[in-house]
Design a protein around this nucleic acid. Structure first.
Length: 325
RNA sequence: GGUGCUGUAGCCAAGUGGUUAGGCAGCGGUCUGCAAAACCGUGAACGCCGGUUCGAAUCCGGCCAGCACCU
């Protein structure tokens, strides 16, 4: 059993806005790690997970259990209903404020997550976009989506080329999402988004020291497969049925989530149970791989071993880094 | 034993005498407010043996395997 460490106020003075950030792919053991860390240090977790923010999506997002949440306090879990708007930008702002609050209580915030863009929003900062009316924007987005369906991506791309050739150059892979986003921004503000990226810069306050749970690919894929089996046994189907029964549309962004979209297909009789499970496993593996692609760009201290060893290691290393500077 | 059908990359699958099918998976990558999203790049084939032909995955014969039916 690891010893509890009480951090002195001088430690907090030396912190200089550096904080622990744990990034690891899905199913790698982040929740267990948070629990272990909370046994050693007075921490509060900033969950950087774009799916666990949703109420009712519990089993399929592998949300921490009530007991786990009791052991390690988490923020940004269950903060919106499945039909509410949320975004990386909102997360970045709110998380930064929350971190300050936690520090002011002399607790150690630990950013923990799997959503690359949320981490980026918090630590790199997105540009300073003025808050648009959500309604106005979603109308425009729908219009652009319709245009896409009618006229094809070439048409939208040519539009973008007219107003914002720099972005067009950047999105020459013709990714509809990004092209629509760039056009949307231009129509709403009259400014090319590429220009705003350069001129409306937000300076993030906190500086992460990244840690990660080391897993080899085959092990991680095994864990994922097992966890999906477990989700199914624990009643993922009922969870999804309940959510739909509450009146939430299957077309919601929140339900366009691995585990949920496949389960919806199964419930509608489009695919078999076996196929649904197989697809969830596969898509989760695909997702984990994309997460790894994202994290590889970060300067992560990958640590292997048992979860409690990793927790001790992180605590030890972080305290040393802070003490030596 | 007989008859018929099928045999194309890890999987699904189109094709047919002479230029890359395609999809999925795998692997690598992109990412500035939908990001568990949305995209981009990438390898590997025609069951075996022989024949016809300038040229066969494609036509012919035999063999093998699987499936179906018959006896």
């Amino acid at each position: 059993m690891a010893k509890r460490i009480d951090l002195s106020s001088s430690f907090y003075n030396q912190l200089n806005n550096r904080i622990i950030a744990v990034v690891s792919p899905t199913a790698s053991g982040k929740t267990a790690l948070a629990v272990e860390l909370s046994k050693i240090l007075n921490i509060e977790v900033i969950s950087a997970d774009s799916r666990q923010i949703y109420k009712y999506l519990n089993i399929g997002t592998a949300k921490p259990s009530k007991e786990e949440l009791k052991q390690a306090k988490h923020h940004f879990i269950d903060i919106v209903t499945p039909d509410e708007y949320y975004s990386a930008g909102l997360f970045g702002n709110q998380a930064e404020k929350k971190i300050s609050k936690i520090l002011s209580k002399s607790y150690l915030p630990v950013v923990l997550g799997g959503t690359g863009l949320y981490i980026k929003a918090l630590f790199d900062g997105l540009f300073l976009e003025k808050h648009q009316s959500i309604e106005k924007r979603s109308n425009l987005r729908n219009e652009l989506q319709q245009k896409l369906n009618q006229s094809g991506i070439e048409y939208l791309y040519n539009e973008l080329l007219k107003f914002d050739p720099i972005s067009a150059q950047k999105y020459s892979d013709l990714n509809p999402r990004r092209i629509i986003r760039a056009l949307e921004y231009y129509y709403l503000t009259g400014k090319p988004i590429s220009l705003s990226h350069k001129t409306e810069v937000l300076v993030p306050k906190y500086q992460p020291i990244y840690y990660g749970i080391q897993n080899d690919r085959a092990d991680l894929y095994n864990k994922i497969n097992q966890r999906v089996e477990l989700m199914w046994e624990r009643g993922l189907v009922d969870e999804v049925k309940d959510i739909l029964d509450m009146g939430y549309s299957e077309n919601l962004n929140s339900l366009n989530t691995v585990g949920y979209k496949e389960t919806i297909m199964f419930i509608k009789g489009l695919i078999s149970e076996k196929r649904a499970i197989e697809l969830i496993k596969q898509h989760t593996r695909n997702y984990a791989k994309r997460q790894m692609t994202w994290f590889r760009k970060l300067n992560v201290n990958w640590i292997s071993g048992n979860i409690n060893e990793i927790a001790e290691n992180i605590a030890f290393v972080f305290i040393n880094v802070v003490a030596k500077s």
